[in-house]
């Protein structure tokens, strides 16, 4: 276990380094950010000066090593636009994003698993067919369309929920959260539901496939021959055996939602990381984009690590090496 953790930590460092190189290179091909930070009527001398201040006058290699050196000292760069450390800007918005993502994952999982278990255990029943058709719809509907429909009905037509913004927040250990106020929840629900739809559909289908496979296994019939109820067999014996692929997809989806809640946050004016990313791309705020992508890489690596640990907890035959 210790060796495994060390191995994963080294792997994490390598991944982050690779991401830093790729991101840095990509960024340097995407236009000159200097024009984004100086007034339009600046003189050539002023442009040169701005370049020097931003370090853009040096060679690419030099720029990279300065960038890397700063990273190692915990300096992740300063936003051209906000003139604040890029990492602070992102971390400030991380809780808002995590909030809708966590709510979305909870909604997706609590609905997907029972429906998936049912559809897997009762293939061919009308309700199973309905569930499967619904999940196909959920996979194929684009998120922005779902968001717009929700806004149209719940915010515009029926006026049940507000259409945008974050609502009241309360600080818990210094982190603002809207999950402790009614107003906060009324703002969270629509974007969270929007985010959950695709994940719900995928998790449901994976759960169903797992249960169909597991239902054929002898130990399911042996459990019934012991007198376990049908439900007890499905949830007590079947689910855990079908869970490995579900957990895999859960991890991928979780990372995906954290990293790319962008569209949903934009539609709902949700002040999360995704919206910051869009704004930063628009303004060519290179340091913010770099830190954002590195943070996303870090999140994926950490999630992967946790999923691996989870595998070993689910199935005793799996050991980490």
């Amino acid at each position: 276990m210790f060796a495994y953790t060390v191995k994963r930590l080294i792997q994490m460092v390598v991944v982050l380094w690779a991401v830093s190189v790729i991101v840095f290179l990509m960024m340097s091909f995407t236009g000159d950010p200097v024009f984004m930070v100086i007034p339009i009527d600046s003189s050539d001398a002023e442009i040169e000066q701005a370049r020097r201040i931003l370090g853009l006058d040096r060679s690419l290699t030099e720029q990279y090593f300065i960038f890397l050196g700063n990273l190692l000292q915990g300096d992740f760069g300063t936003s051209y636009v906000f003139r604040q450390p890029a990492i602070d800007l992102i971390l400030e918005r991380l809780p808002a994003t995590m909030e809708i993502v966590v709510v979305a994952m909870v909604i997706a999982t609590t609905i997907a698993i029972p429906l998936g278990v049912y559809a897997g255990a009762n293939p061919g029943k009308p309700l199973s067919r309905l569930i499967m058709s619904g999940s196909l719809l959920g996979i194929s509907l684009p998120g922005f369309w779902v968001g717009m429909m929700l806004i149209y009905f719940f915010a515009v037509e029926w006026r049940i929920f507000p259409s945008s913004g974050r609502g009241d927040t309360v600080e818990v250990f210094g982190v603002p959260t809207s999950l402790l106020t009614a107003d906060g929840w009324s703002h969270v629900l629509l974007p969270a539901i929007t985010l959950s739809v695709g994940t719900l559909a995928i998790l449901l289908r994976i759960t169903r496939a797992g249960m169909m496979e597991v239902s054929r296994q002898d130990y399911m019939k042996f459990a019934r021959a012991k007198g376990v109820s049908r439900r007890g067999v499905l949830y007590g014996h079947g689910l855990r055996n079908g869970l490995i692929p579900v957990v895999t997809i859960f991890g991928l989806q979780l990372g995906d939602l954290i990293a790319f809640a962008t569209i949903t946050e934009t539609i709902f004016g949700w002040p999360g990381m995704g919206k910051l990313l869009v704004d930063s791309i628009y303004r060519a705020d290179r340091p913010v984009i770099v830190v954002y992508l590195m943070l996303v890489a870090l999140i994926f690596v950490v999630i992967n690590f946790l999923i691996d640990i989870l595998y070993t907890m689910i199935d005793p035959r799996i050991t980490v090496k």
């Binding site: 002898d218 130990y219 042996f222 459990a223 014996h237 689910i314 199935d315 005793p316 035959r317």
Partner: peptide
């Protein structure tokens, strides 16, 4: 088949 009649995760 005793290899398959016991639940592998319990």
């Amino acid at each position: 088949d005793p290899m398959t009649s016991l639940n592998p995760v319990h």
